[in-house]
């Protein structure tokens, strides 16, 4: 059973169909690319899966369960976590605090639990801090632990966002153009991070329009154009079949 199953998904904004009957699946443990020209509906699909955008038709199933009518918060709690095309760091929180907002089920995030004091939530907090530090050191950002996230470079903000999402132990990580607006050196860093995550079995759906990047990273690729899925398969395969080129041309 695929981890995520999207069938005939639709969303229109004021009569304009941004997503017009898209169907695809995302296999667990794989890094799936979602590509297509501007306006193909990629970001809307991410919003529809994450729940920030409501579908006007079709259905989405996660681990076999329909989630089309679940709220964004509920979907996040089921393990669907996203990053944004525009940086969405918590600017006046430190990098460490940004990461610590990630984990779910924190006893100190319940009002009564917080009032009970540190002895009630400290143990889990400490475990989360250790986990955050190990992520920071892996992502080469250990020195930035106490920096305000708003003061980081664009690429570092992206990494913070990815790490924050990872802190929540996502079952499905939706990455909406994580390399957009990031300098080339950082892009390679983010690529190596994604490669590592893929090796470790994290399921990801990556929206990207750099085809070379997608070819290097992704196991499977979904090609969208004008709100529909026009092709799926391996990147090399798709290139030879010409659908990708066509999609970019018609887009």
């Amino acid at each position: 059973m695929p981890l995520l199953e999207v069938s005939d998904l639709r969303r229109s904004f004021g009569g304009v169909a941004a997503v017009d009957g898209a169907s695809f699946t995302v296999e667990g443990g794989a890094l799936t690319g979602l590509i297509g020209p501007n306006g193909a509906g990629k970001s809307t699909v991410v919003g529809l899966i994450a729940g920030s955008v409501r579908a006007t038709g079709g259905r989405i199933a996660f681990r076999g369960q329909p989630i089309t009518n679940r709220s964004e918060m509920e979907r996040s709690r089921l393990g669907i976590t996203r990053t944004y095309q525009l940086s969405s760091e918590f600017a006046r929180l430190t990098v460490m605090d940004n990461l610590l907002v990630g984990p779910k089920h924190q006893p100190g995030e319940v009002l009564v639990g917080a009032m009970m004091g540190r002895h009630h939530w400290g143990r889990i907090e400490d475990a989360n801090i250790v986990k955050a530090r190990s992520l920071l050191s892996r992502f080469g950002m250990a020195d930035a632990e106490n920096a305000y996230a708003g003061e980081l470079s664009g690429g570092q903000k992206r990494l913070v966002e990815i790490m924050r999402a990872l802190m929540s132990d996502p079952q499905l990580l939706l990455l909406d153009e994580p390399m957009a607006g990031v300098n080339p050196v950082r892009i390679l860093e983010i690529e190596s991070v994604l490669t590592a995550l893929r090796r470790e079995g994290v399921t990801m759906l990556l929206v990207e329009h750099e085809l070379d990047t997608v070819e290097r990273l992704c196991d499977a690729v979904i090609v969208m154009a004008r709100g529909r899925v026009v092709a799926t398969g391996g990147m090399a395969d798709l290139r030879s079949r010409g659908e990708v080129v066509d999609a970019y041309l018609v887009g």
Binding site: S76, Y84, E89, F90, D97, G102, Q106, G108, L111, G113
Partner: peptide, 20 residues
């Protein structure tokens, strides 16, 4: 507490807090 941190996160970016 983590609750206060979560409040600050909401202040900074409500959309991202919901997504988490």
């Amino acid at each position: 507490s983590p609750y206060g941190r979560m409040l600050r996160a909401m202040r900074e970016n409500e959309r991202a807090a919901v997504a988490l």
